[in-house]
């Protein structure tokens, strides 16, 4: 039971990440590999503010979201001029840089040693210390992000994004300032990823930079490619499939490092296979 709850919590965290990434990649057709960076910033904001400043979990979520919004706004201003290859490479660069800052700004982040002793969230005397209660908390957050995704998907905002992903010039000629649309969705997606980071930090109680490398961003990217681009449901299904996979590998009894590399290899093969067979993903509504 505890094992399943643990798995459920991880599903939830990755569903939030996948949903927020799909707003950028699926809904807007912008190949972002930066999601792990915002995930990491959210996690570090919560970890450092809770352990260092003794702040309450829920306010640290907001702090992480604000930091992410500021960074995403600044980078997004430049990113919004581009799409396709350039978008992918700049966002990958951002991810490498954020990792390098987390690793090297030792006075703030404690460098490669990471941050220890992050408490579970509590509200009004009740602590979400059991896995069951924490799982419920995560479910609430997933539901919120899912509803946000759904609402955007039904709004004129997403219609414009979908127009931009195919023909930005045409969308512009209907009176939309396309760069602002691209920049706003990037900021929003970064903020929501921060929430996932906060949940991760408080759940694991110990974080270090190695979790938030570029390969994590590629993994998140794989989740939505497999699950389906521009689909809320696909994001969640993709997360479930790709999180379950290493759990299945665990039964093979391979050494840890071998299993980890094997996983990477399978993720890579999945990306290639999806591109050859079904580029829009299982439940996807958008073909690149």
């Amino acid at each position: 039971m505890e094992y399943l709850l643990n798995l459920g919590i991880i599903f939830c965290i990755y569903s939030i990440l996948a949903l927020s990434l799909n707003m950028v990649v699926g809904m807007s057709g912008l190949l972002s590999l930066a999601q792990a960076a915002f995930y990491g910033i959210g996690a570090y904001a919560t970890a450092l503010c809770m352990t260092g400043l003794g702040l309450d979990f829920f306010s640290t979520i907001l702090i992480g979201m604000v930091i992410n919004a500021v960074i995403a706004y600044m980078v997004g201003k430049i990113l919004s001029r581009f799409k396709g290859d350039y978008y992918a490479i700049v966002s990958a660069g951002l991810s490498i840089i954020v990792f390098s800052v987390l690793l090297n700004w030792k006075s703030l982040t404690n460098g490669p040693l990471g941050v220890f002793g992050i408490d579970k969230p509590s509200v009004g005397g009740f602590s979400f210390s059991s896995n069951a209660s924490f799982f419920l908390l995560c479910l609430v957050f997933v539901a919120m992000v899912y509803v946000i995704y759904y609402a955007i998907d039904k709004s004129a905002f997403s219609r414009c994004l979908k127009a931009i992903r195919e023909d930005e010039e045409l969308a512009g000629s209907f009176g939309y300032s396309t760069k602002r649309f691209k920049s706003i969705i990037f900021v929003l997606s970064a903020m929501l990823s921060g929430v996932a980071g906060a949940l991760f930090a408080t759940y694991i109680a110990f974080i270090d930079p190695s979790t938030f490398q570029l390969k994590e961003g590629i993994f998140l990217f794989t989740i939505i490619i497999v699950g389906g681009l521009s689909s809320a449901w696909g994001s969640v299904v993709g997360a479930v499939i790709l999180i379950s996979l290493p759990e299945a590998l665990r039964f093979l009894g391979l050494p840890y490092e071998t299993a980890a590399q094997l996983q990477q290899m399978i993720y890579g093969a999945m990306l290639v296979l999806m591109m050859v067979l079904r580029p829009q993903g299982l439940f996807g509504k958008y073909r690149m």
């Binding site: 609402a151 955007i152 709004s155 004129a156 905002f157 219609r159 414009c160 209907f174 009176g175 939309y176 300032s177 602002r180 649309f181 706003i184």
Partner: peptide, 9 residues
């Protein structure tokens, strides 16, 4: 449709 990004939400 609404062309202001905030209102278009």
């Amino acid at each position: 449709a609404e062309s202001d990004p905030w209102k278009s939400f």
